[in-house]
Computed example of a mutant assay.
Amino acid sequence: MSRLTTTIAIAAIAASLAAQESQPTQHATERERAGQLSVGYTDILDTYLSQEKFTGTEFGYLSQSLSRRDSSHIVRETVHHVLVGVAGTRGNDNSLLTLLYNLRLGWMYRWHWAAPRLTLLAGGAIDGTLGGAYDTRNSNNPAQARIALSIDPTARLSWQLRTGRHPLALHYDVTLPLIGMAFSPNYGQSYYEIFSRGNYDHNIVCTSPFSAPQLYQHLSVDFRLWRTTFRVGYLGEYRQMKANNLKYHQYTHSITLGWCY
Rank of each mutant, 00 (worst) to 15 (best):
R117F: 02
I13K: 06
H73C: 07
G128E: 07
A212W: 00
T229S: 12
P185L: 01
A182I: 07
Y172R: 03
V232T: 15
A14W: 00
H73R: 15
S16E: 09
T207E: 01
Q217Y: 05
F195N: 08
G56I: 01
T89D: 01
T136L: 06
Y216T: 06
A15H: 06
E77N: 13
L99S: 15
R224I: 09
P167G: 10
S184W: 01
T119P: 02
S220E: 09
I204A: 12
P142N: 08
A12G: 07
V79H: 13
H218G: 04
L215V: 14
T256S: 13
G236F: 07
G106I: 05
T25Q: 09
N203I: 03
H202S: 11
F183D: 05
L149P: 07
N138V: 02
F210I: 09
W111M: 06
W259N: 01
Y200W: 09
H73T: 11
P167F: 05
R69M: 12
L178Q: 06
L235T: 03
G85V: 11
V221M: 14
L178A: 15
R68T: 13
L97D: 04
A148Y: 09
L168Q: 09
A243K: 04
F223L: 12
T89G: 03
L120G: 05
T55G: 10
A115N: 10
L149K: 08
D222S: 15
H218S: 13
W107A: 14
F54D: 08
M108A: 14
I151T: 15
Q217G: 05
A9P: 00
R68W: 06
T6V: 05
A18K: 04
H112I: 03
P142Y: 08
Y192F: 01
Y172K: 00
L120A: 13
L17A: 06
Y261I: 08
V82G: 13
